[in-house]
Design a protein around this nucleic acid. Sequence first.
DNA 1: CAGTATCCCAAGCGATACTG
DNA 2: CAGTATCGCTTGGGATACTG
Lengths: 185, 185
Amino acid sequence: MGRPNTNRKNNRVANAECSVARAMAIVGDRWSILILREAFYGIKRFDQFEYYVGVASNIQSNRLKRFVDAGIMRRVPLAGHSTRWEYLLTDKGRDFFPAYLALKRWGDDWLAGSDGPQVVFRDRETGKDDKSPKLLKPGGRTLRLEDIEVVAGAGAVPFNRKRFAKADRSARLAKLQRRGSPPEY
Amino acid sequence: MGRPNTNRKNNRVANAECSVARAMAIVGDRWSILILREAFYGIKRFDQFEYYVGVASNIQSNRLKRFVDAGIMRRVPLAGHSTRWEYLLTDKGRDFFPAYLALKRWGDDWLAGSDGPQVVFRDRETGKDDKSPKLLKPGGRTLRLEDIEVVAGAGAVPFNRKRFAKADRSARLAKLQRRGSPPEY
DNA sequence: CAGTATCCCAAGCGATACTG
DNA sequence: CAGTATCGCTTGGGATACTG
């Protein structure tokens, strides 16, 4: 960090408590999300993951173990066999789907080839092909960064409690109203 | 991959075209998402990122460059200075926020400490503290993996077009109806 | 089929020093 | 302040070989 960052210890704690940092510790590498992608597409067996993801078997083995340890997948015997297995998503794993979807939506909007996305999701009820949905505000409008303000949560460590103190709100709001708009990013 | 995966070339192509894989090539490492987090919280300057993220300056320098190259941030002179800069989110960068939020929501739901999340987002309009919103179906119901079916998109490479052929739908639906429910994950 | 073991290289990362 | 340069360590990853 160039000059010593004397704050390092504080943000070590803050990062350890950051739920996004925790999520990235599980899925934040090159292959994990691709393996999850295949799981969302219905893939269950080792060799099928291998085939569709194109990852080395040692790496995949490592990732699947990590997923089982993290409670994202469970490893169950394939019906009738004692030495063959399936890797099935748990509730926790299935619940990651919206995050996958939001990532996909961003990629489709900003990184896709000119021909459009590789896959789309079709609603089972309506049969309609939809682009991955955007995050909506409860009212139904698309949620944007500008719509929100950050405040400390219930479990905030001191470092974050100070930083995002709710007390700031009135001061910050006043400032906003003087400027008439949310901060420029 | 143990035995040679003769399909490797195909999924190299398929992965290169996968918009999630592309997204992860930009933000799929330990630090990127934490730097983005700070940007979403309003941080703009090099030393402030350093302070709040706790990353080594060489790594951070590298990531900020990557972000600028990827069009997620722009580097602009700080008002009045010629040798000081700000890193501001572009539209593309700001539009990543929902993906960040979905990730956070999953982390808060499944990985947070017992005391609750570190930070919450407060709606600027209503002033209400909200958990990060879930993805909603257009109707308003929470979107779940079971609600959708995967079909090839407009830009699908042959590998994916075959795999997710829309023609499968009737066959798959019939199968589903026989079973009465979506595939077990 | 479903992995494990090994080897070796490349990249990531942290610490420190240095510069305009 | 805002980085760059360098060094050495550690991790990730690809290829191949091997096992029950």
